Computed example of a mutant assay.
Amino acid sequence: MSEEILSAERAKGIRRLLYVILGFTVVLVVLGLPLVLGDYVRYGIIVIGVAVVLAVLGGLALQAVRGGTEKAKPLTIVTGVATIVLSVPLIPIWIGLLTAVTGIGLLVVTVAPERDAS
Protein backbone atom coordinates (compact mmCIF):
# COMPACT_ATOMS: atom_id res chain seq x y z
CA MET A 1 0.00 0.00 0.00
CA SER A 2 1.59 3.26 -1.07
CA GLU A 3 1.13 6.60 0.66
CA GLU A 4 -0.84 9.36 -1.03
CA ILE A 5 1.43 11.79 -2.89
CA LEU A 6 0.75 15.47 -2.11
CA SER A 7 -0.81 17.63 -4.79
CA ALA A 8 1.27 20.49 -6.19
CA GLU A 9 -0.90 23.16 -4.55
CA ARG A 10 -0.84 21.43 -1.18
CA ALA A 11 2.92 20.87 -1.41
CA LYS A 12 3.38 24.60 -2.07
CA GLY A 13 1.50 25.51 1.12
CA ILE A 14 3.37 22.90 3.13
CA ARG A 15 6.73 24.17 1.84
CA ARG A 16 5.84 27.69 2.93
CA LEU A 17 4.94 26.55 6.43
CA LEU A 18 8.11 24.48 6.69
CA TYR A 19 10.15 27.55 5.72
CA VAL A 20 8.39 29.45 8.54
CA ILE A 21 9.31 26.69 10.99
CA LEU A 22 12.92 26.77 9.79
CA GLY A 23 12.89 30.55 10.23
CA PHE A 24 11.69 30.07 13.80
CA THR A 25 14.64 27.77 14.45
CA VAL A 26 17.02 30.59 13.55
CA VAL A 27 15.13 32.94 15.88
CA LEU A 28 15.28 30.33 18.65
CA VAL A 29 19.04 30.00 18.33
CA VAL A 30 19.40 33.80 18.43
CA LEU A 31 17.21 33.90 21.55
CA GLY A 32 18.90 30.90 23.15
CA LEU A 33 22.50 32.07 22.88
CA PRO A 34 22.14 35.04 25.29
CA LEU A 35 20.30 32.75 27.70
CA VAL A 36 23.16 30.23 27.63
CA LEU A 37 25.76 32.97 28.01
CA GLY A 38 23.79 34.68 30.78
CA ASP A 39 22.12 33.44 33.94
CA TYR A 40 19.59 31.07 32.32
CA VAL A 41 21.89 28.35 31.03
CA ARG A 42 19.45 25.43 31.44
CA TYR A 43 16.59 27.20 29.72
CA GLY A 44 18.93 28.40 26.97
CA ILE A 45 20.02 24.83 26.32
CA ILE A 46 16.35 23.78 26.12
CA VAL A 47 15.61 26.57 23.62
CA ILE A 48 18.60 25.66 21.45
CA GLY A 49 17.73 21.95 21.72
CA VAL A 50 14.19 22.65 20.51
CA ALA A 51 15.65 24.66 17.64
CA VAL A 52 17.93 21.79 16.61
CA VAL A 53 15.13 19.19 16.71
CA LEU A 54 12.77 21.42 14.70
CA ALA A 55 15.53 22.25 12.21
CA VAL A 56 16.27 18.57 11.59
CA LEU A 57 12.62 17.56 11.29
CA GLY A 58 11.74 20.61 9.19
CA GLY A 59 14.70 20.03 6.89
CA LEU A 60 13.85 16.37 6.38
CA ALA A 61 10.19 17.16 5.72
CA LEU A 62 11.08 19.96 3.32
CA GLN A 63 13.45 17.70 1.41
CA ALA A 64 10.76 15.00 1.15
CA VAL A 65 8.08 17.49 0.02
CA ARG A 66 10.41 19.01 -2.59
CA GLY A 67 11.23 15.54 -3.92
CA GLY A 68 7.60 14.47 -3.91
CA THR A 69 8.44 11.25 -2.09
CA GLU A 70 5.96 8.98 -0.35
CA LYS A 71 7.49 9.95 3.01
CA ALA A 72 6.54 13.61 2.58
CA LYS A 73 3.15 13.40 4.26
CA PRO A 74 4.22 11.31 7.29
CA LEU A 75 7.30 13.47 7.84
CA THR A 76 5.21 16.62 7.63
CA ILE A 77 2.73 15.25 10.17
CA VAL A 78 5.57 14.32 12.55
CA THR A 79 7.07 17.80 12.12
CA GLY A 80 3.71 19.45 12.85
CA VAL A 81 3.13 17.38 16.00
CA ALA A 82 6.70 17.96 17.20
CA THR A 83 6.34 21.69 16.60
CA ILE A 84 3.21 21.80 18.73
CA VAL A 85 4.66 19.68 21.54
CA LEU A 86 8.02 21.46 21.60
CA SER A 87 6.25 24.83 21.70
CA VAL A 88 5.19 24.24 25.30
CA PRO A 89 8.57 25.05 26.90
CA LEU A 90 8.85 28.11 24.64
CA ILE A 91 5.67 29.78 25.94
CA PRO A 92 7.56 31.95 28.50
CA ILE A 93 9.41 33.73 25.67
CA TRP A 94 6.22 34.15 23.58
CA ILE A 95 7.62 32.51 20.47
CA GLY A 96 5.99 29.32 21.73
CA LEU A 97 2.59 30.69 20.80
CA LEU A 98 3.74 31.42 17.27
CA THR A 99 5.39 28.03 16.81
CA ALA A 100 2.31 26.24 18.16
CA VAL A 101 0.03 28.06 15.72
CA THR A 102 2.43 27.24 12.88
CA GLY A 103 2.47 23.56 13.88
CA ILE A 104 -1.32 23.47 13.95
CA GLY A 105 -1.44 25.15 10.54
CA LEU A 106 1.01 22.61 9.15
CA LEU A 107 -1.15 19.73 10.39
CA VAL A 108 -4.33 21.28 9.01
CA VAL A 109 -2.82 21.87 5.58
CA THR A 110 -1.35 18.37 5.51
CA VAL A 111 -4.34 16.29 6.63
CA ALA A 112 -7.31 18.35 5.42
CA PRO A 113 -9.19 16.71 2.55
CA GLU A 114 -8.47 17.95 -0.95
CA ARG A 115 -11.04 20.27 -2.49
CA ASP A 116 -12.49 19.40 -5.87
CA ALA A 117 -11.31 21.65 -8.68
CA SER A 118 -14.77 21.68 -10.26
Rank of each mutant, 00 (worst) to 15 (best):
L22G: 14
V20R: 08
R66D: 14
A55G: 11
G105V: 04
L97F: 07
S2Y: 02
R66E: 11
T99D: 07
L33E: 13
I91M: 13
L106H: 00
I95F: 09
A112V: 02
E114I: 00
K71H: 08
E9V: 00
Y43I: 06
V27M: 13
V41S: 12
K73R: 15
W94D: 15
M1P: 05
L37E: 10
G103Q: 04
I93F: 08
V88W: 10
T79K: 07
V101P: 05
W94E: 15
L86A: 06
E70N: 09
A117I: 02
A100N: 00
V81I: 15
V108W: 02
L75A: 05
V30S: 07
I14K: 01
I95V: 15
S2T: 03
I91V: 15
V30C: 12
A8T: 11
V101N: 05
V56Y: 03
R16M: 07
V41W: 09
L98G: 14
Y43Q: 11
A100W: 00
E3A: 11
E9M: 00
G67P: 06
I84Y: 00
P92H: 08
R66T: 00
A100T: 02
R10I: 00
V85M: 06
E3L: 12
G68E: 13
V65D: 10
D39L: 03
G13R: 07
E70M: 07
G38Y: 01
G32Q: 14
R15F: 01
I84W: 00
L75E: 12
P74S: 08
S87T: 01
L37S: 13
F24D: 12
L97G: 15
G38Q: 09
L75I: 01
G49H: 03
A55C: 10
L31A: 09
T83C: 09
E3M: 10
R10C: 05
G44C: 05
G59W: 09
L62K: 07
T83A: 15
G80R: 01
V52I: 12
L33C: 04
P89I: 02
V26M: 13
